[in-house]
Design a protein around this nucleic acid. Structure first.
Length: 346
DNA sequence: AAGCCGTGGGC
DNA sequence: TGCCCAAGGCT
């Protein structure tokens, strides 16, 4: 257990610093309400603030309320998430809107928030803090780094043992007053001061009591994650296009790019490939594997067979003017737009 | 419990 | 360039 004075001092240093030096102009901090906080937190999962901002603003213009989102189609939702990645977040956010809409009221407790699709322990704490200015412990990448340094905690911070320790610290350090400023202060400190590389310790309000700094171990904490070798996979995609239209299939869930529309993908030993000619190729780097993609050209006589490739998956022709209406995987959209007949200017 | 799930920023 | 990392959740 931490001493009460230690806790109070830590809280006031974070809160006072946030009010003076923290971020106050982020889009989701303006006209704040629980729905805007929910959308921003889902978008911000594993995604940088600068990347999220334009997505958040477009999202709010199209889906300004929980009800508006609940009434949207899956394709409308995926089109707005297109390019942001981790598309399960979009499907979960849509589910969350339906769930909350049917509930009739936005959940207001940690336990109730944890029942919302896509809301885990971090996001529940963030919503409590930002939407209600209420007690809501958070442990995200910023907090892991900051606490690992401040308390000089060794070990990979998302390992189960250290994770448990960090949450226990978070529950003790999180205040019941100035909750919003405290949570925002932790995130702002992590993003702007206690950065992964070259932290600005001389500007840090916690420097005098930071154990990593006192022990001269800032550069070795937090403990780096072990590197993993990323496998290489081959992918085979079908190019079937005519008159400014391209044949796409909606990808199944679960799996990579679920609910997005893609060039149809077939297995390496698919008989269709024997009748195809090579049309192009691209490489795409995921977090967990590298994709070497080959795009094979077919003609319309193979359309019936192609529609059977993925059992029961919707497929359709899309004119280049319709490609903005649905979500496409970033490299697939990029590939299509590189084809002369699908280049941007009509 | 460890693997899956995207994409882009920044150095 | 290649590599680490990002307001994680789900299974």
């Amino acid at each position: 257990m931490l001493q009460q004075l230690v806790v109070k001092t830590f809280q006031s240093q974070v809160v006072n610093w946030q009010k003076e030096h923290g971020r106050h102009q982020l889009p989701w901090q303006q006209a704040s309400n629980p729905y805007r906080v929910l959308v921003s937190e889902l978008m911000l999962q594993q995604t940088q603030v600068s990347t999220v901002i334009p997505y958040f603003n477009r999202w709010m213009l199209s889906f300004p309320t929980v009800e508006a989102l609940a009434n949207a189609t899956n394709d409308q939702v995926m089109a707005h998430w297109q390019g942001l990645g981790y598309y399960a977040r979009a499907r979960n956010l849509h589910k969350a809107a339906v769930y909350i809409s049917e509930l009739g009221a936005f959940p207001e407790s940690l336990d109730d928030l944890l029942k919302v699709p896509g809301v885990g322990r971090y996001t529940a704490g963030a919503i409590m803090s930002f939407a209600y200015d209420a007690y809501g412990p958070i442990v995200d990448g910023n907090v892991r780094r900051l606490y690992a340094r401040y308390f000089a905690i060794s070990g990979v911070t998302n390992s189960s043992a250290v994770d448990k320790q960090l949450w226990a610290l978070s529950e003790q350090l999180t205040p019941t007053e100035n909750c919003k400023s405290f949570a925002q202060g932790l995130l702002d400190l992590g993003a702007t001061i206690c950065k992964p590389r070259q932290p600005l310790c001389e500007q840090c309000p916690l420097a005098l009591t930071c154990q990593a700094l006192l022990q001269n171990r800032v550069d070795e904490l937090p403990t780096p994650k072990p590197k993993k070798i990323v496998p290489v996979k081959d992918g085979h995609f079908i190019w079937l296009a005519q008159d400014g239209q391209v044949f796409l299939q909606k990808r199944p869930a679960p799996g990579i790019w679920a609910s997005l529309w893609s060039l149809p993908q077939v297995a390496a030993d698919d008989a269709l490939l024997k009748q195809a000619t090579k049309h192009g190729e691209f490489v795409h780097q995921f977090t967990h594997y590298k994709l070497n993609a080959t795009v094979w050209q077919l003609d319309q006589s193979h359309l019936v067979k192609l529609q059977q490739v993925e059992e029961q998956q919707p497929s359709s022709w899309y004119h280049k003017t319709q490609l903005a209406d649905v979500g496409l995987p970033a490299p697939i959209r990029s590939f299509i737009e590189q084809q002369p007949e699908f280049s941007k200017p009509d």
